[in-house]
Every structure is written in C-alpha cells, then in structure tokens.
C-alpha cells in the first residue's frame, strides 16, 4: 500500500468520513474511494452495498478479484434530555455499541450520578453540538419536550443529515414543532425525516420500553436505509 494512501485512510477515519480502500488481489493495485466518488467508480454498486452493510469483503468483477476495506465511523447517539428514558437508553445503547452522549442544560437533570454509563454535558445544544461535528453517522433523539432545548438540536440534526432524528411528543406537540420549523425555513422533505411520535410502535409504556422502541427504530434506520443520503442528479 502506498504510504500516502494509508495516510488518507487514517485521516478519513479521524475525521469521521466513510471511505473504502479497493485492492485488486492480482497485482495489488489500490485506490481509496470516498463518498463523493462512489458513483463514478467502476465498482460503485459494490462499494455502495459495502458502505451500507459496513462490512469489508471480496467482490468479483469481470474475472478480477478485489478486496474492499470498508471504513465507516462508529454510530454516535446524541440524546437531548437527561430524562428517565435516557437513563434506560444509556446502558442499552452501550450494549449495542453506540457511542452515546447526553446533552441537557438543566443541571438538576444532567448529573453524572444519574448516568454512570455515558458522558453527560450540562450545556445547551447550541453550545454542545457544534464541536461534536454531528454527521450522517449520528443519531439524535430529543426527549425534553421543551422547544427551547429540542428545537435547536433538531435544526442542527436536519442540517447535518443525521441518519436518524427522533423527537418525543404527541402528534399535537409534533404539529406545533413542525410549524416552528417551517417558520425557520425547513421544508416538508426535511421535516418528514423527523420520527415523531418517536420509536417503533410496540405499545411501549414505561421508560425502558420506550427506550427499547427508540433503539429498535435507530437500528432499523441504520441497517435498512442507505447512510449515503444525496445522489447526484
């Protein structure tokens, strides 16, 4: 492997950019394919499928064998609201392998004692989210019900193309939320990406049950939907 190629692969991982290293087994020719180059690549379809599954593997094309080294950033789960559901979700998210962080400016809620499993930031989302550089490998759940806290997070999540955006609240609450987001300039297509009422419909009642339904919905979005959002027209 060319050293510069290795440096680019490592840089992509550090910067949370998905990338696929294509190695032709016979002869060892290699190239690094990043998201914006997938469609133009001769192995575009195979690379796209590999990026969706997140798994490295061999592919055959016209008698030649290639190995695809797939590098996707680990899933991050940003939870807005250090509430009861978040307490149930934290150990579950950890078990699934998601990198979870909780953001809540209300210092009475956002204490490490309440959340032994995950980091808690007692900050407003406007302050906490930008340094995190949320991206398409990030899921966001808004659990506070408080527009002052949830809305700024939702706006940032929509702009960052997060693969999962969920917001707690009844249909009525969500209706009002959509009105506020419309006033902020978001379109119907953007807002259709917000899952509300949040969670798979499994009849969840208790906080751990709701956390389960939310986690299931995130996994569904991760595994069933392409993480690559835009396709050039």
């Amino acid at each position: 492997m060319d050293r510069l190629l290795l440096e680019r692969l490592n840089a992509a991982r550090r910067e949370r950019r998905a990338a696929v290293l294509v190695t032709q087994i016979e002869g060892g020719a290699q190239r690094l394919v990043e998201l914006d180059q997938v469609n133009a690549d001769p192995l575009g379809e195979e690379i796209d499928a590999a990026l969706r599954s997140g798994k490295s593997g061999m592919v055959e094309r016209e008698g030649a064998s290639y190995f695809l080294t797939v590098q996707v950033p680990p899933v991050r789960l940003v939870v807005i609201g250090a509430v009861h559901i978040s307490q149930a979700l934290a150990p579950m998210a950890k078990m699934v392998g998601f990198d979870m962080v909780i953001v809540d400016p209300r210092t009475a809620f956002a204490t490490p004692e309440r959340f032994p499993d995950v980091p808690v930031l007692a900050e407003w989302p406007e302050v906490a989210l930008p340094p995190m550089k949320i991206d398409r490998y990030t899921a966001i759940c808004c659990f506070t019900h408080d527009p002052k806290i949830d809305d700024p997070a939702l706006e940032q999540a929509l702009r960052a193309q997060c693969f999962y955006i969920g917001a707690l609240g009844s249909r009525k609450t969500h209706g009002k939320r959509l009105e506020r987001l419309t006033a902020k300039g978001f379109g119907a297509e953007d807002m259709a990406r917000i899952r509300a009422p949040i969670g798979l419909d499994i009849g969840a009642v208790t906080p751990p049950e709701i956390a389960t339904s939310v986690l299931g919905e995130i996994i569904l979005a991760l595994r069933k939907k392409p993480l690559r959002v835009e396709k050039p027209a």
Binding site: L6, G28, F67
Partner: peptide, 11 residues
Amino acid sequence: GRIRVYVERVG
C-alpha cells in the same frame, strides 16, 4: 475454519 490473508508492503 480457514482464512485467507492478504499481505502487502506499506511504502
């Protein structure tokens, strides 16, 4: 089980 391993030089 069986495994195949690709070995390459970095340089």
